[in-house]
Simulated assay, not measured.
Amino acid sequence: MSDRLSRGKLGEDITADYLCKNDFEIVARNYHSRYGEIDIIAKNSEFIAFVEVKARNEKALERPAAAVTSAKRRKIIQTALIFLSEFEYDLQPRFDVCEITIDNRTDVLIELNYIENAFDTEGFL
Rank of each mutant, 00 (worst) to 15 (best):
E86Q: 09
I41F: 09
N57H: 07
V53Y: 10
I100F: 09
G36M: 01
Y89C: 02
A28N: 12
D90W: 01
N30L: 01
T15H: 14
Q78T: 08
D107P: 01
I100E: 11
F95G: 07
R73V: 02
I14C: 04
Y18F: 15
L19E: 04
E25D: 15
I102W: 05
I26S: 12
D39E: 07
D23E: 13
R29K: 15
I40R: 01
D103C: 15
A55W: 06
C98F: 13
D107F: 11
R105L: 09
E25S: 14
L109W: 10
S33A: 02
E88A: 08
F24N: 00
N30F: 02
L91M: 04
D13V: 09
L84T: 13
I100A: 01
H32C: 11
I48F: 12
F83R: 00
L109H: 01
I76A: 01
L91F: 09
Y31D: 05
G8M: 01
D13T: 05
F83I: 00
A55M: 08
K21C: 03
A16Q: 06
A55Y: 07
R94K: 06
T69Q: 03
S70V: 08
D96H: 07
D96V: 02
H32M: 06
K59R: 05
I102R: 00
V51H: 13
Y18D: 02
V53N: 12
H32L: 04
V27F: 11
F24Y: 15
D39Q: 06
T69K: 08
N22W: 13
P64R: 00
I77R: 01
R105W: 04
I100Q: 00
R74D: 15
A65M: 06
E12G: 11
A55N: 09
D13R: 01
N30M: 01
N57L: 04
A55G: 14
S70M: 04
E111C: 09
L109E: 13
I82E: 14
Q92V: 15
C20E: 15
V68T: 13
I14V: 14
E58V: 04
G36V: 02
A16H: 10
T69Y: 12
I48T: 06
E46M: 13
E37V: 11
L109P: 11
D39C: 06
D96W: 02
I40E: 05
A66Y: 10
F83V: 07
D107C: 00
S70H: 15
D96R: 00
D39Y: 10
Y89L: 05
E86Y: 04
V53E: 10
Y35M: 02
F50G: 03
P93Y: 10
K54I: 08
T79I: 04
T69E: 07
K75N: 12
R63T: 08
Y31A: 03
